[in-house]
């Protein structure tokens, strides 16, 4: 075989083999807004290497992502920007744990302000009333006003008459 024929044959073989290289790696890149949480104990010690579990608003009972915090107690995740709502993150270690709810809209934290923590006890005396009970109570109040108005607007002569009787 001539040299040019050998080269052509090798070249064709190489071209034929190339598609069979299935172990190639491909890396792409893009930009996304990530959420970083930091977990610490009461005394400020980082919860390092603690279990972190993320729950999506779409399914709050099934973990959406699991991982571990780093040595600073930090854990980073990128929420699905198409799923808005409260993304919950649970961190646990050695019998200690906590869970936080992060409001996210279109991949971003819904408010830069910290969640409202100064709350007021709700269980007021009428929080257990049904709508029917509330309507009846309101009706009683209104009827009381009407009754009072009718009392004061009555005919004085009829009052005197009734007194004479």
């Amino acid at each position: 075989m001539k040299n040019w024929q050998v080269l052509l044959w090798l070249g064709l073989n190489c071209m034929a083999v190339q598609p069979a290289l299935a172990h190639g790696a491909k890396i792409e890149y893009g930009q996304a807004a990530a959420i970083i949480i930091r977990a610490t104990y009461d005394d400020g010690t980082p919860m390092a290497q603690a279990q972190a579990v993320v729950y999506s608003p779409e399914d709050p009972t099934t973990p959406w992502l699991k991982g571990m915090t780093d040595e600073k107690g930090e854990f980073t995740f990128v929420p699905n920007k198409d799923v808005s709502g409260n993304w919950d993150v649970k961190v646990r270690q050695s019998g200690h744990g906590s869970i936080i709810s992060i409001p996210i809209t279109e991949g971003l934290i819904a408010s830069e302000e910290k969640p409202e923590i100064d709350r007021v006890e709700l269980l007021s005396s009428n929080s257990d009333l049904t709508p029917l009970q509330k309507i009846l109570m309101a009706a009683a109040g209104i009827w009381g006003f009407i009754g009072t108005a009718l009392f004061f607007s009555r005919n004085p002569s009829s009052h005197q008459k009734s007194v004479r009787q």
Binding site: S101, P115, R119, L122, L123
Partner: peptide, 25 residues
Amino acid sequence: VTAYQVEGGFNPEAKSQIKSETAIR
């Protein structure tokens, strides 16, 4: 004993009171 639904969760470490629209005794 009372169970509450709290929008956005409740953080007991904040030593605050619970604000909830649904509370079950």
